[in-house]
Design a binder for these strands. Sequence first.
RNA 1: GACCCCGUCGUCUAGUCUGGCCAAGGACGCGACCCUUUCAAGGUCGAGAUCGCGGGUUCGAAUCCCGCCGGGGUCACCA
Length: 473
Amino acid sequence: MAEPVRVRFAPSPTGHLHVGGARTALFNWLFARRHRGVFILRVEDTDRSRSTEEFIASIVEALRWLGLDWDEGPPAAGYRQTERLEIYRAHAERLLAEGRAYRCVCPPEELEAQRKAAQARGETFRYSGKCREAHVPADVPHALRLKLPLSGQTVVQDLIHGTVVFEHGQLDDWIIVRTDGSPTYNFCVVVDDVTMKITHVIRGNDHLSNTPKQILCYQALGYPVPAFAHIPMILGADRSRLSKRHGATSVLAFKEEGFLPEAMVNYLARLGWSHGDQEIFSREELVQHFDLAHIGSAGAVFDRVKLEWLGNHWMKQMPAERLANDLVPFLQRAGLAVPADRQWLGRVTETLKERARTFVEMVELGAFYFADPAGYDREAGVKFFTPEAVPRLALLLKRLAAHEPFEPEALETLYRGLAAELGVKLVDLAQLTRIALTGRDASPPIFQVAALLGREKTLARLRKCLAVLEGKA
RNA sequence: GACCCCGUCGUCUAGUCUGGCCAAGGACGCGACCCUUUCAAGGUCGAGAUCGCGGGUUCGAAUCCCGCCGGGGUCACCA
């Protein structure tokens, strides 16, 4: 048996979890679960000015919602970079002692000037190496730079992109510790991944360019280099990196909209990864089939419409109890009374799930179950509130008052009989009833609606409608 | 600008490593029809890709090689 797989997701809490980060987390999680390995959550909060507790809580909430549980990480201590400063300091000191790093006192303003000059000349700025052999004494304020080889190349064996070669001439002695003593991101990542014994670094493609610098750091430290897999980025419709201007990108925003986490996970997994022609995956199937080999190498455009399709698909799969349960907060938010009868609510969701992609839509489509319609859809009224509507409603009221049982099948029999009797089509009676009961000309099957509403409410709404029509006449 | 990555229907993709089964398959979306008490859902059919472009190698290339073009990413004492 090979060494156990250990992977991590390392967000920096400077914002909410966005879909790109969520997919990175998902791929790591799937890889860990697939190989019975360990999934670690690590918080990269070294940027104290932008990192907040609120964002950490938000990211945790998003991961929980998606069902991506971690084996190691917060709230346990030791998984936040701000708690690990001593570890970075020790590693930096060792590099310095072993001559793999050196003190640098070049003033930032001077470097900035050189950067501008290089840019003007059309070149990439690289640190001159001025302090490399300067032997700066420890008692003057200094930054620490990693000493890189001047020639040769570093090869990244990427599990997705294959062999990627970087010339050392393109790299420079980068800063691992700032003048204020704080470690830099690239250095922390290496030290963390090494000390947490990470075996596979699965992260966004935007980090591929940083990888040779990091590999050189592993080597300077004398540690084995983990395997790398740089997954392509998620793009907006214009094929540039997905951002807020492309619309909702926060995972929690999709939760608020009422998407099922199953749909989100299914969608995200299929965005960039594939398993033949299969589109629908349960969490278990994903764990069973996921592999890095079938992650594509091209960026993928985020397609909300396809997510919505999956939203509807998973709604249809979900058992009534689960739907009833999950719908409650959305009812509350819409200001609708939450019915005490959960079983009744379950039956209501059964009639709604075919046409809803999210819980917000479900509430919107089924509001009439929980409150009397506020009015009647204008266009529907024009079409169905004809002169014949009044006598028809009156007749329906009369027949419905004593009809037994008040259930879909019996109601349909009654309606069909009445339609034949009046010489009209069923649809005429059905639509009239639909508008009276729901306020609109589109709803779940009307006999089910009536049965669910019960005789009392059904009659009351028909009566109300009749009154309105007579008042108008 | 330099370096790196990427390039199959509008979108997600199968196929590319191990050339022929691909005059390119599936899915979302779109159109039509069927079903039907409405709307959805479902079913059937259809439009939609000269596999970024140009050369080569080969009996044969989406698949191998070279060049070009296009898009994206990275170049901080940010993460």
